[in-house]
């Protein structure tokens, strides 16, 4: 998700092409071409400019409703509704061919779904499958203690800095809690999936979120060539 303004000028974006299975947008105002995943202007008068990223979540509608009962939801366009993906679109997409070049020694299947983050310039990819198994992954990326958590819907992923006022939290998943909650052993504070401390010594604090991009491995790797990949149990 991007800010539409570049140097104070509001741009209106359109779908305009495909570059290695990631789409190109064209802005109406200058005609420049932009890469969707990186927000970088590839060609045209604004070549070299980058769009400013806006933090966004990719969560289930159930989580959205719970957290933001006042939110608004994009309505389907009735004229083209029949062309929307079926509810099982994720399985269908997994069967699509990958045509971008991959290294032969890459052991990860190109359409492995990753939750990717970048912290202090270091890119890290967490296989969504592993997050479903492990629910909570404590890690250190770019010198910053972080954690990645999968909600109990098995779909919504968020990442946070695991430090509060310079203190590092040792988090655990609260057994049997639905919706998911985390507890940190040291201060006995309970945290919800939005990163808010709901009870305990740190109640009222909010953890800093880290942007997560759910992406296929082949695509993540193109735009983050130096990425590391989390391996289950390898920490």
């Amino acid at each position: 998700m991007w800010e539409s303004q570049v140097d104070g000028r509001k741009l209106t974006f359109h779908l305009a092409g495909i570059n290695n299975q990631n789409f190109i947008m064209r802005d109406e105002e200058t005609g420049s071409w932009w890469q969707q995943v990186s927000g970088e202007a590839l060609h045209g008068p604004l070549k070299g400019k980058r769009l400013t990223q806006v933090y966004n979540d990719e969560i289930s509608f159930a989580v959205f409703k719970r957290e933001h009962p006042q939110g608004r939801v994009l309505r389907p366009d009735e004229k083209v509704q029949a062309k929307y993906e079926a509810a099982n679109w994720e399985e269908e997409y997994a069967k699509f061919p990958v045509v971008t070049p991959m290294k032969a020694d890459d052991k990860i299947a190109p359409r492995t779904l990753m939750a990717g983050i970048v912290v202090n310039g270091k890119a890290m990819a967490y296989p969504v499958n592993d997050l479903q198994k492990q629910r909570l992954i404590l890690d250190n990326v770019g010198g910053q203690p972080i954690f990645v958590v999968m909600s109990d819907d098995d779909k919504s992923v968020r990442a946070f800095e695991s430090t509060v006022d310079g203190r590092k939290l040792e988090l655990l998943v609260q057994a049997e809690a639905k919706p998911l909650q985390l507890v940190d052993a040291e201060t006995a504070t309970t945290w919800d999936f939005s990163g808010a401390a709901v009870s305990g010594a740190l109640a009222g604090k909010q953890l800093t979120r880290i942007q997560v991009l759910k992406d296929y491995w082949f695509d993540w790797k193109i735009y983050h060539p130096d990425t590391a990949v989390y391996a289950l149990g390898a920490r």
């Binding site: 998700m1 806006v54 933090y55 966004n56 979540d57 990719e58 969560i59 289930s60 509608f61 159930a62 959205f64 409703k65 933001h68 939110g71 939801v73 309505r75 389907p76 509810a87 819907d153 779909k155 919504s156």
Partner: peptide
Amino acid sequence: TKFVADNEMVMTVA
């Protein structure tokens, strides 16, 4: 909103 099921994914911004 009747057109989105609870288990469907949404992109959200605040």
